[in-house]
């Protein structure tokens, strides 16, 4: 019973892995930042591990809230969470943040390190995600949220 209550206070943050795209890197950095800011309320989930998904991992996905960060319109993170029975409370496409933050132009050609602006942008996104995590947990009262911001 205690375990059940503990589980529902966590928001999973699932970023894109996108090894070939800078937006994948940005989504990772943003996710790292968000989880670092509220480690007791959130947790990073590894996208590749959905391949060898075991009961423990399925429970993480199904019994918690999920925020997905997708690097491209293929939306792998969102699809993998939903395919495994999870509900996605917030789904974000990284391109949206580029449009919203035109003052921070990132080096999209450099996948490993899209530059200082990408670091700044990741922190900005991390701040937004931190707020979302709080909103999901505060507003939920045990109910899963419905809105998806793409």
């Amino acid at each position: 019973m205690t375990e059940d209550v503990e589980i529902k206070t966590i928001v999973n943050v699932v970023p894109c892995s996108g090894i070939g795209k800078a937006l994948g890197t940005l989504s990772r950095w943003a996710a790292f930042d968000a989880v670092e800011k509220c480690p007791e309320k959130s947790r990073l989930l590894c996208l590749s591990r959905f391949v060898v998904i075991d009961d423990e991992y399925k429970d993480f996905v199904r019994n918690n809230y999920n925020i997905t960060l997708d690097g491209c319109p293929e939306k792998c993170a969102t699809k993998h969470v939903e395919r495994n029975g999870g509900t996605v409370q917030k789904s974000h496409l990284m391109a949206k943040y580029l449009i919203k933050n035109r003052d921070l132009k990132i080096d999209v050609k450099n996948v490993s390190n899209p530059g200082e602006n990408a670091e700044k942008l990741a922190k900005r996104i991390g701040n937004e995600l931190e707020e979302e995590i709080d909103e999901i947990l505060d507003g939920s009262n045990g109910e899963k949220g419905e809105d998806k911001n793409v």
């Binding site: 996108g18 090894i19 070939g20 795209k21 996208l47 590749s48 293929e74 792998c76």
Partner: peptide, 8 residues
């Protein structure tokens, strides 16, 4: 190869 994409 983007593994999640390939898995999708």
């Amino acid at each position: 190869i983007c593994v999640p994409l390939f898995l999708n």
